[in-house]
Amino acid sequence: MRVLVCVKRVPLTGGRIVLTEDAQAIETRHLGFTISPHEECGVEEAVRIVESAEGESVVLTLGPPEAAEQLRDAMALGIDRAIHIVSDDEEWDPQATAGAIVERIRADEAAHGPFDLVFFGNESADAGNYQVGIRVAHALGRPVATGLKGVSVESATVRCEQEVAGGRDVYLLPLPAVVTVLEGLNLPRYPSVPAKLRAQRKPLESYSPRRPDSRLEKVRLVVPEGQGKEAVVLGQGPEAAAAVVEVLQQIGVA
């Protein structure tokens, strides 16, 4: 099995989001970075599949030079090698992102054979465009199932499970296929220190294509006004219990 997983570097915001002065991005000077929990589950699943079926797992990102950090993180979890499409500081729109990913997949497949399975997050943590995986699948002419909480490879097909009201919907896709996954698919492992060191030596290729014009063109970001609430402090410690019950009664739930 050859398995690819696509991840996107995003800032790890805390309790409050602050924008840059030009309102084009989140101010990240004091923040760490990560990938979406959905994509973390994609990485974990890719590693598990190759652990049990042999083959090769590859991680790909399109992002600034610093996004190499997220590729190393994925390799510390067991991914074999990485492809970095290095972008400028501008965010690429989802069509351009999908186009660049398709180009790299085609090139890698020409050299190493097809990916049986390509993993995406259902939606990216920051942009939430809900489309890059679907666009890539369409361009490659492969079937895609989205929003999955269960993925299991059964010889030449992949069984895909999607949570819906009242149960799970099942799809059976012929391989090669594309899947977009959700957090809850599995419980990702934590990297060990030796695995982190090994990841530093795993192969990482990089490419720098030109960014096409945006067709979903960001004008600016806005942080919606908070509710500006001043919480009523009902008390300190267990003595507050009576006041809490009064509130619950007022609301009509106790």
Binding site: L19, E217, V222
Partner: peptide, 12 residues
């Protein structure tokens, strides 16, 4: 964006 924590104005 970000599940509603940020809004984006964009031209389509």
């Amino acid at each position: 964006r970000w599940g509603g924590s940020v809004l984006e104005e964009a031209r389509v």
